[in-house]
């Protein structure tokens, strides 16, 4: 298998304080990887650094063999990286259709875009009903579908998801997890960040535990579910 994403020695700081310290990890093409960690561990910071929304202090980011560390955010999209941001951050005053369209902003191939749009609407049939509605007026679950659809419209090779199940009802959580798995089955590499560790670990081929800006444990998902430290710290079992 080839490496889809290779992060080495990534250090990101807010002012003097390093929120992410010398983090290295690799995601193989076609797999689902997950970073789990408590609130404030630095998960969002890592994803934003990958997208170029945070300057990195040290380290490198290699996407599909190409070093993208120095690229501005809008060019990273063209290299096949897109993110479903924490808290969804839809364009609330645009319709669902417009949100999806703008997801494909970086692409010019009209036919392929149309194809992907149909695909997204097939993945989330609910969005077809809500197609002309303003995104800001949707329910939380529907908004999450739009956020995922928007990111998929960029036709990413690697999809980053930041806590996609946050604040959702259990059956919607399942729906989102299923969608992630389906997208992955179609060949998109996924890097999933969660506090809600169980649902993430269940579907992950590879998992990293992030604590205070450092990776402290690595393994495959199902193995980590049974790991005593993970069980006590993230899954709420007594050790």
């Amino acid at each position: 298998m080839s490496k889809a994403l290779e992060v080495s020695n990534l250090t990101v700081a807010y002012g003097e304080i390093a929120a992410v310290r010398a983090v290295s990890f690799t995601v193989e093409a076609g797999e689902i990887a997950t970073i789990i960690g408590a609130n404030g561990a630095g998960k969002t910071t890592i994803l934003n650094a990958l997208c170029g929304l945070r300057d990195v202090r040290a380290g490198s980011i290699v996407l599909g063999g190409e070093d993208i560390t120095a690229l501005p955010p809008h060019e990273r999209v063209r290299h096949g990286l897109s993110q479903v941001p924490e808290g969804r951050r839809l364009f609330g005053r645009m319709s669902v259709a417009e949100n999806l369209e703008i997801g494909a902003y970086a692409r010019s191939d009209h036919a392929a875009r149309k194809h992907d749009l149909d695909h997204v609407l097939e993945l989330f049939p609910r969005l077809r009903e809500r197609y002309r509605q303003l995104a800001g007026t949707l329910s939380g679950g529907e908004q999450q579908m739009v956020a995922m659809g928007r990111a998929l419209m960029a036709a990413p090779k690697v999809l980053l998801l930041d806590e996609p199940t946050m604040g959702l009802a259990p059956q919607i959580v399942d729906l989102v997890s299923d969608a992630v798995r389906r997208v992955n089955d179609e060949g998109v590499t996924v890097l999933l960040v969660e506090q809600n560790a169980y649902s993430a670990l269940e579907i992950a081929d590879r998992a990293f535990v992030l604590e205070s800006g450092e990776i402290t444990l690595t393994g495959n998902g199902p193995d980590l579910i049974t790991h005593p430290r993970v069980r006590s710290a993230y899954l709420g079992y007594d050790a």
């Binding site: 929304l53 955010p73 809008h74 703008i102 902003y105």
Partner: peptide
């Protein structure tokens, strides 16, 4: 297209950039 991009930039500059809009 550009009108959409402006609106997106105005609503959330970070997300707009991450979607490929050159700010």
């Amino acid at each position: 297209r550009i009108g959409r991009a402006w609106l997106a930039m105005r609503e959330d500059e970070d997300v707009a950039q991450a979607l490929g809009i050159d700010p």
